[in-house]
Amino acid sequence: MVAVASSAGGIRALSQLLGALPSSFPVPIVVVQHLDPRHETVIADVLGRRSLMPVQLAQPGEQAQPGTVYIAPPDRHLLVGSGGELTLTTSELVHFVRPSADLLFESVAGAYGARAIACVLTGAGSDGAMGASAIRSRGGTVIAEDPESAEFRGMPDAAVGTGSVDFVLPLDEIADVLVGLVATRRA
Score class of each variant (00 low, 15 high):
148 E>A: 14
92 E>R: 11
172 D>G: 08
68 T>C: 14
146 D>E: 15
149 S>R: 08
47 L>W: 09
128 G>S: 13
90 T>Y: 01
47 L>Y: 09
54 P>A: 07
46 V>G: 07
76 R>H: 14
139 G>A: 07
99 P>R: 01
161 G>P: 01
140 G>K: 06
52 L>I: 00
91 S>N: 13
66 P>M: 02
58 A>P: 09
163 G>V: 03
166 D>S: 14
141 T>Q: 07
90 T>L: 07
67 G>K: 05
105 F>N: 02
86 L>F: 03
154 G>V: 12
166 D>I: 09
145 E>M: 10
58 A>I: 11
150 A>S: 15
44 A>L: 07
102 D>H: 02
83 G>M: 06
72 A>R: 01
126 S>V: 11
52 L>A: 15
136 R>P: 00
79 L>F: 01
87 T>H: 10
81 G>Q: 15
157 D>H: 06
169 L>T: 11
130 M>Y: 02
108 V>L: 11
126 S>R: 12
163 G>I: 08
84 G>W: 01
117 I>V: 15
114 A>G: 00
69 V>F: 05
154 G>P: 14
99 P>N: 03
92 E>P: 01
124 A>T: 15
93 L>N: 06
118 A>N: 07
165 V>Y: 10
38 R>A: 08
123 G>Y: 04
55 V>A: 02
85 E>T: 12
100 S>D: 08
135 I>N: 06
123 G>R: 04
128 G>K: 15
63 Q>T: 14
131 G>E: 10
126 S>E: 12
115 R>F: 05
61 G>P: 08
132 A>Y: 02
49 R>T: 09
55 V>W: 04
36 D>F: 03
62 E>C: 08
132 A>F: 06
93 L>I: 08
62 E>Y: 01
167 F>V: 10
162 T>E: 15
168 V>Q: 14
139 G>L: 10
163 G>Q: 09
40 E>W: 11
94 V>N: 00
116 A>R: 02
118 A>G: 15
67 G>S: 12
95 H>I: 10
113 G>V: 01
157 D>K: 08
173 E>L: 10
62 E>D: 13
111 A>R: 10
39 H>N: 11
48 G>F: 10
67 G>A: 05
54 P>E: 11
143 I>A: 09
42 V>M: 15
53 M>H: 07
63 Q>K: 15
111 A>E: 02
94 V>G: 02
78 L>M: 12
43 I>C: 09
